[in-house]
Design a binder for these strands. Sequence first.
DNA 1: ATCAGATTTGGGAGCGCTCCCACACCACTG
DNA 2: CAGTGGTGTGGGAGCGCTCCCAAATCTGAT
Lengths: 345, 345
Amino acid sequence: MAVVRRGVGRDGRPTLEQVAARAGVGRGTVSRVINGSPRVSDRTRAAVEAAIADLGYVPHQAARALAANRSNAIALVVPEVEARVFAEPFFSGIIRGVSAELADTDIQLLLTLIRAPRERTRFAQYAAGNRVDGVLLVSVHGDDPLPDQLAAMGLPVVMTGRRSAREPVPYVDCDNQGGAQLAVEHLLGRGRTTVATITGPTDMYAARCRLEGYQEAMRVAGKPHDDELLALGDFTEESGYAAMKELLRRRPALDGVFCASDPMAIGARRALRELGRTVPDDVALVGFDDSSLARHMDPALTSVRQPIEGMGRTMTRALLRQIDDREAEGPRLVLPTELVRRASS
Amino acid sequence: MAVVRRGVGRDGRPTLEQVAARAGVGRGTVSRVINGSPRVSDRTRAAVEAAIADLGYVPHQAARALAANRSNAIALVVPEVEARVFAEPFFSGIIRGVSAELADTDIQLLLTLIRAPRERTRFAQYAAGNRVDGVLLVSVHGDDPLPDQLAAMGLPVVMTGRRSAREPVPYVDCDNQGGAQLAVEHLLGRGRTTVATITGPTDMYAARCRLEGYQEAMRVAGKPHDDELLALGDFTEESGYAAMKELLRRRPALDGVFCASDPMAIGARRALRELGRTVPDDVALVGFDDSSLARHMDPALTSVRQPIEGMGRTMTRALLRQIDDREAEGPRLVLPTELVRRASS
DNA sequence: ATCAGATTTGGGAGCGCTCCCACACCACTG
DNA sequence: CAGTGGTGTGGGAGCGCTCCCAAATCTGAT
């Protein structure tokens, strides 16, 4: 025979039923108050709120999730293949933005690192299991099918960055091309005549955009197209080092380099030092990301800053809107970038 | 009149009941299989597993959480007051360790940043609401009451680092004193005769331990106690810069400095450069943390490495054990540190 | 063959909430 | 004064699972 103890939580915590009893109303009414329904009279609402405060009631999330079929959680997915993402402030900036935006909701942030392909599958399954209401994807590669998979499940998804110019999945990106163009215009404006670039991996859309920004600035300045001023990197310091050596071999007289990432700029700087070139006198250097590396390079690195925290906030806001209203249009936003001038240029 | 459709999930996903029907067993049996109970015959288990695979069944977490009164989630709490924690790889290393350890459980990691005191209260309430099974606390200050509060609620808690020598809450720490001692012994072993130290904030236990390591090494080497070789910092680059200037004013002839954090070493290096001292020829420098800053300093910084990822793994393993068995002893572990030698010493 | 004891199994009850139907109550209208 | 159309409100049903009791089945010793 079940002991009747309506409304007493199993570990002593008050339940909604207890609140209802205390306020002298029904369960439904308390639920309405908690969920901010307008269909409650002011008198009743006040009584319920008082009861909630008295009892120190906190809704039981699992019960809510089960009954309402939503989890009150969103996932932030980081493909950690990009260890880079971690070392740099990019990732933490995104987290900061996301959690700032989540701060006055009761939505939880689940952090999910995906390393192995196995984990990728696993997460897709996990997401299929009603465990998150939406997904934020960070730094997705050009050929990653995960965004489409998730979107196909009907799960709201927002990415940072695009995979291509025609990105089907909603995204919040920054103006990679514009930033790169600013950087190169800055170098040219400082009187540099032979400006090279070290690119990111060309299978990444962001890297291609930065290259286009470089090319556009050169074109506007009336510089003839010159493939010898272009060296491929992959965003890593090592690749920057190698690319810089190659560039100097080809064009010993170059006097400016736009690097598509800060670590590559660090590598380039090392190569320059080894070959006896000074920065910025012989060669001016500009990076991209405005990471802490930039500030600590010697000389401090001029770099293109992305509004990382803002991107985090924006994508979160957009995701929440989509969760609220499945019909809502997903974001397709490109936020501005700016040049932070330091001693290296 | 309710439509009878036993075992069909509301959004088409199979339920436990459906699996049971398919396998020709009862709900309880399926539940036992899922939860790895030994009280199931091999034949039955195989049948259930086949049904699970056929149907692509994934347990509904909210339902589990509600019924079993556990959330299958743990929180990693970061008092972001320490922005430092973010910029450095410490934090990401911990995350990496934690999530590696969580990888083959179905436990989710909730990341919680606490900035304002308001959020601190909020989290305590949140944690009280059965939403997490345990809490990992990162980089807690000496006077933070949160660990005790959580522990008092009966919630399993593990911290990185201690708040004092007599830490009541379970922790996983690293050998700060030993690491510092190694660093200073190294400097002395390289023939440096006048070795100073720049300390961290003395309200942090880790900082005090590092100072003790310095003092112990000096004592063992038979150096007379000399307070003029000791300058206070607060782990930031600026404080390192100021402290270094002060030290040089007091002891122009010093030839070695142990800095209790890498950013302080960067600051010290800047001060040394400004005063025309070379590193390592005039003054040898050692840092603590072995962050990426260390590798990128010029010259690359010798630094004490903590097994960060290992700490993350260890604390997670310990937390899971405590969640499993509330009576289990919490960890009180101090992991070894090691010296990474580079060009600065 | 028989039965105590161990092993395996089925399924009722219930976790704490939301959803939604039904009903009470309140103006107003004609 | 009956009728109409709001508002507010109560509470049954049910979300998908786990827990646990009791029943069924299977040992192996007598």
